[in-house]
Amino acid sequence: MIKIKDLEKIYRTEEVETVALNKLSLEVKEGEFVAVMGPSGCGKSTLLNILGLLDDPDGGSFMFNNIEVAHFNERKRADLRKHNIGFVFQSFNLIDELTVFENVELPLIYTGVKSAERKKRVEEVLDKMQIMHRRNHYPQQLSGGQQQRVAVARAVVNRPKLILADEPTGNLDSSNGNEVMQLLTDLNEQGTTIVMVTHSEHDARYSHRIIRMLDGQTVLENIMV
């Protein structure tokens, strides 16, 4: 599903040049659950942004479903992203002005799904995340765990092939964190590919494979059994 070769990303300011990704190569197969680990500043977030088509690389190749996307313009990237990729963030990133239902509905609106169909799918996914009773509440009225479940619901409502999770349990206590990890595992078992950045060895154990990064390169791969 994802094939990366010699990927480079360099951040430049007037005085300093920071190499975030240094000729990184990586492959993720369809249906895999991969955890990316490493110290702060090792480039794992940059990698996730590029995988999520939020940022473009400065060099190298990025094949997504056998299409070269490294030099797609913003429009094309947005189009590919909204149909194929779901995001889960550490800080949930729900829109405060929208209710739970409306937050989850948003990706469907941008992909042009009809209103009746939207309602059905949002309810389905809210049900699955056991958050249906909170559908008319605003994010501030929910606990952290509930907010993250809404965020996961939003990430999967469009039935993406790939979910990118950026420290999904970072802001949660351990029981809520485990719940979210279980959700991701369930999704993966139903066929969704997941790439997750995490600091937590505990969370990483839910994955099939751990990629350890340092200074913009992969240094080690652990296959989980």
Binding site: G52, R75, A78, K82, F87, N93, I95, Y110, T111
Partner: peptide, 16 residues
């Protein structure tokens, strides 16, 4: 800005 960011990640175009 946060709202804009989320909307964009989810798939909103600049024009939207």
């Amino acid at each position: 800005a946060k709202e804009v960011g989320i909307r964009k990640v989810i798939g909103a175009m600049k024009g939207q």
